[in-house]
Write a protein that binds this DNA or RNA. Sequence first.
DNA 1: GCCAGAACTCTGG
DNA 2: CCAGAGTTCTGGC
Length: 173
Amino acid sequence: MLISYTITDSPLGRLLVAGTARGLCFVSLGDADGLLEKELSSDYPAAETVRDDVSLSAWTAALLKYLDGERVPLDLPVDVEGTPFQQSVWAELRAIPYGSTTTYGEIARKLGYGATGARAVGRACATNRVSLVIPCHRALREGGALGGFRWGLDRKARLLDQEQRAAQLTLGL
DNA sequence: GCCAGAACTCTGG
DNA sequence: CCAGAGTTCTGGC
């Protein structure tokens, strides 16, 4: 498997975007380029990763606009492996409209797992490799607490804050 | 290869 | 407050 990737600057830190011929397979935010590259290769140990700033530019531009607070639809193609359970959780996450949020428990109930599946849902979100395209930051804990976030809670808070601002602007507020 | 414990949770006793 | 329930991964044996 061949994966090309690129790294650019973004309002939330360094942004790594990686994809196969079929779609995005890895998106990550971080502070150091080297760490991001390491994350990618340890997540895809069998793949060959090559830096390619050109062919990924369209997807990268869309993500940058999004991180900049523009309300763009992130309906980019993704190419991620996952169990059926994970796929269904990710599908639910992508169905959350821009600017709104849901809870882990609600997703679990919708999928027919009752309240007990909430933890499993949280785990499925945590192992999602394309966290901006699949908006796992729109999943909160019951009671409004943010819960956890792979890239740090302040990034989660900033993403949500930005989304809510942009959504309100669109409504004419 | 198997078992225990942890991870972005929630509910009921 | 404590324990248990469903999924997946990791680490120890």
